[in-house]
Design a binder for these strands. Structure first.
Lengths: 191, 191
DNA sequence: TACCGCCCTAAGCGCTTGCTTAGCATGCAA
DNA sequence: TTGCATGCTAAGCAAGCGCTTAGGGCGGTA
């Protein structure tokens, strides 16, 4: 059986609140009441509002990196691998649009130290996509003029989902992930 | 000669502040001091903090719509027109990354009435891109499976620039706009 | 000199903020 | 029964918030 600790309940409450109102627009009282606790309870389990943000952001970055890394390892055939990476990365952003919104839009609200720590994950994500494109070009399976720029653009498609995606909307996460994967193949298809 | 009124100075200060710290994270005292005025001066020229945001957001939406509309009118040849639209839209987001950030990320901070007003501009922008793709398909010059989805994805490339673009960075707005235009052509190229 | 209209500010009001402090209830060990 | 650790809260502090009020300074007209 899974027990949710008070600490985790507060983290889940913070995810809801930060995604809905932004970090600066969220009060610690709001987080506490979403978790069904008193305002002081936040500080029993967490150091500060910013450390709650860091926890959410760090977990989110780790999760996103893991998704794209395991997609990269799923195949050695360049087109199939690219498909899997774009599909899974976009699907992650649809399935975790609230965490994703915090990861992307509250990045600047982290302290300098915390932002630096999280930045290493971002670079790893970019590198994974660049490596997949470069390898595909080397193997002659993909045609890409600007590897870093194309890699960044492919990630942008997924990241931008968090700006507007809502579960239950007119398009499912799977549909959007398929669309992005198709576009990725078109973008890198040899003539 | 161009005179900048106190009202405009406050708007420019608000653009700086909102883009840097977000709407909720910005104080009216910060806006006033950036404009070299006292805190009370904000309310001499503007009704509220939110009405300042609305002014910035509305101007930004109008400007972006104008850019993509005139690009759409620049050519009747589908590939050239698509290139122009993607290029200009992305370049606008690079050149106006601070206003663009406010337009995109503070959309939810508007009042319901103001958000509804601004939403009409967003729909017009999406429609312009969809129409350009649909017309290109009709003329047989473009191959697009999912017109609304592809249109949205092309706009995403430009919009996502505001998340990270800084003038003086490693890539210029023109370089990024060229990249996006190239990718757009690849995405819609017939086999 | 007297007056007006325009811009702007000093001061502050009522409220909310992140966070702290002091202490209470519960359960377990001896 | 006593002692103590654990997990929480009531109350509140200093600071900062959006916004208002009352009035000062100044250029132009007469």
């Amino acid at each position: 059986m899974t027990t949710i600790t008070a600490r985790e309940r507060l983290i889940n409450a913070a995810i809801e609140a930060f995604a809905e109102k932004g970090f600066a627009g969220t009060t610690t009282r709001d987080i506490a009441s979403r978790a069904g606790m008193s305002p002081a309870a936040v500080y029993v389990h967490h150091d500060s509002k910013e450390s709650l943000l860091f926890t959410v952001s760090l977990n989110g970055h780790r999760s996103a990196l893991e998704v794209i890394t395991s997609a990269a390892a799923s195949s050695s055939e360049p087109v199939q691998r690219l498909r899997a990476m774009v599909y899974d990365f976009s699907l992650w952003h649809a399935d975790h649009s609230r965490v994703g919104r915090i990861v992307q839009y509250e990045y600047h609200a982290l302290t300098d130290e915390h932002r630096a720590e999280v930045a290493t994950y971002r670079r790893s994500i970019e590198k994974a996509m660049q490596d997949a494109l470069a390898d595909g070009v080397d193997q002659g399976a993909l045609d890409v003029d600007d590897v870093p720029g194309t890699a960044f653009s492919l990630l942008s498609l997924g990241v931008d989902l968090v700006r507007w995606f809502e579960p239950g909307g007119s398009r499912s996460g799977h549909e959007l992930a398929s669309l992005h994967a198709d576009l990725a193949v078109r973008m890198t298809r040899p003539t």
